[in-house]
């Protein structure tokens, strides 16, 4: 049964990929990318990698589609024809794929209990992590404690991505973004060809886009708190089930981005200012690194949470809680920063 699901999902995946490659409308490509992420998330679920699936769904389908769309607002919506034939690319793909397949020939069989993966390091994680680290979710133990330093690295990667974007594109100053969302690219073309009697009706929409989106606003107001609440749940539930700082940060950010989409970016920027976000991003990294440093001052190694409390397990718990918080804050701040930078880059709709 599982293999049928696998086959179906994989064939959908292939179809989506081919469609993405063929399609010239970037908007459609982005939508297909979202589908692609969703499919791969489903595949991860069938492989029992629920945490990965969760992250993929939150980041791939959620945030990255929005970010891509906002980036799309800055460019053309159709891909230009490539100047040369795509056969070279095909050759590249075929060669690389062939090498990869060749490489898998001597791999231990998938799920083989005797393969080194299942006999070496993982054994200790499974056997000892509940009384060495604590959380029932082993993924969290590995992620936050055994290999907590890698996670710090990943957090900084996200931080870097955010500030790289700001460094390259730059925040506009407050006065510079008077332009609102939902304003059509140019009035002339979109209205000239339409009948005049309808034109008047929509005149108000241009100036106050939110006013006629009453339903959206109300639903948004209903759901945004729930989204934020859910984000907090994911944040603090990471010890027990799928979840943790990365996913929580993304979900929290998506709540804010939703707010910005419905109520206008400028309003959102008054609620959560770019400066505040910058400080939050910094704070996220500092919380993580700070925990490590505190561990050092208390006599342990960097990120050795055992020393944080009298009882090692409590120490681990506290440490993981804090660093997940740091990750969450950082991811949230960076995601929103990215959205702001794209959204305010140029006149246009998101």
């Amino acid at each position: 049964m599982e293999s049928v699901v696998d086959i179906v999902l994989l064939s959908f995946l292939c179809i989506t990929v081919v469609a993405i490659v063929y399609i010239r409308k970037l908007f459609c490509a982005i939508m297909l990318l979202g589908i692609f992420s969703l499919l791969s998330a489903s595949l991860f679920v069938t492989m029992d990698a629920v945490d990965v699936a969760f992250t993929e769904a939150a980041v791939g389908t959620g945030i990255s589609s929005i970010l891509l769309l906002s980036a799309l607002a800055l460019t053309h919506t159709r891909e230009q024809r490539p100047p040369h034939q795509p056969y070279i690319a095909l050759l590249v793909v075929v060669v690389t794929g062939a090498v990869l397949i060749y490489g898998t020939m001597d791999l231990p069989r998938f799920g083989d209990p005797n393969s080194p993966i299942h006999r070496h390091v993982a054994v200790r994680y499974i056997a000892d992590s509940p009384h060495e680290v604590g959380p029932p979710n082993i993924v969290t133990s590995v992620l936050a404690s055994y290999r907590g330093y890698d996670t710090l690295g990943e957090t900084v990667v996200i931080f870097t991505a955010g500030i790289a974007l700001v460094g390259l594109l730059g925040f506009r100053r407050r006065q510079e973004f008077k332009v609102r969302l939902y304003q059509p690219m140019d009035k002339k073309t979109s209205y000239a060809e339409n009948s005049t009697e309808d034109g008047d009706e929509f005149e108000d929409n241009i100036k106050l886009p939110g006013a006629n989106h009453m339903v959206l606003r109300i639903v948004g107001k209903m759901f945004i708190p729930l989204i934020l609440l859910f984000a907090l749940y994911v944040q603090f539930h990471g010890d027990y089930g799928p979840g943790g700082g990365f996913q929580a940060g993304v979900i929290f950010a998506s709540g804010i981005i939703l707010y910005a989409l419905i109520f206008d970016v400028e309003t959102a920027m008054r609620v959560i200012t770019p400066k505040g976000l910058r400080l939050l991003a910094v704070a996220g990294v500092f919380i993580y690194g700070g925990v490590g440093l505190v561990c050092m001052f208390l006599g342990g190694n960097f990120l050795d949470y055992n020393v944080l409390s009298a009882h090692p397990l409590h120490g681990q718990h506290l440490g993981i809680f804090l660093i997940e918080l740091g990750v969450g804050i950082n991811v949230f701040a960076i995601m929103v920063i990215m959205f702001y930078t794209f959204a305010n880059r140029k006149r246009g709709s998101v």
Binding site: I88, A89, V95, A98, V99
Partner: peptide, 18 residues
């Protein structure tokens, strides 16, 4: 060079290394 052509080099080299 166009980026795509460099990628071709990468593939060729990869295959030849293997």
């Amino acid at each position: 060079w166009p980026t795509g052509s460099i990628a071709l080099w990468v593939a060729i080299i990869l295959a030849s290394y293997v």
